[in-house]
Amino acid sequence: MSAEPTYTGITRRQFLKGGAITPIAFMLAGSGVATVYLRPADAQGFTLRPPGAIAAKRFLSACIRCGKCAQACPYRSIRMAGGEAGIGIGTPLITPREMPCYLCSDLPCIKACPSGALDKELKEIEKIRMGTAVIIDRESCLSIRGLRCEVCYRQCPLIDKAITIEPRHNTRTGEHTIMEPVVHKEKCVGCGICENSCVLPKPVIVVQKSVETQKDSYEF
């Protein structure tokens, strides 16, 4: 041991470790955090939440991201958001075009939610306000163009309440009727079944933010 030279500077190994690996590790950590996390929860526009979800900002902190609602959903409509959702990472959402909410009468997702992010007092299907259906592209809607489509109307779980058919004269042909589907926002629960069932490749009826926000019973 005594013959060993006493070298007090840094070795090549230490230099590489400190000079190369450490900055790379911090860069990876930083860029991972920045790209995945530093964006608002609604960076991708309106997010359709499960039934009974309380108002958006409060929902983000009331939801503890346990995934029990998704596991309780019999249709696998609810999925958990990944990093693309920004600070909404791990929160439940519904993509109607993949699988809409079929409004189970016993609402298993609400029963599964432990924290009250989905309002436990909500028992009636009609009081759900997840969003509201909107016909965003009247130019393309087959029914409004004069064809007998009306699929959204037939599929709507609140048929003749949330979507009605308003017949009017087809002035273009002069002798037919246009059976126009009309969404009644005060009745629509925003389940997304119409968006899911729209026959066009790009749905003309989609669920958007509802004017009326979901009432909840936990405010104190």
């Binding site: 409060r58 009331a62 939801c63 432990p114 924290s115 009250g116």
Partner: peptide
């Protein structure tokens, strides 16, 4: 998580 849901979300569920 309970504490944080209480603080941030103002939700309170007894069973929770």
């Amino acid at each position: 998580a309970f504490m944080q849901a209480l603080i941030g979300g103002n939700v309170f569920v007894l069973s929770y």
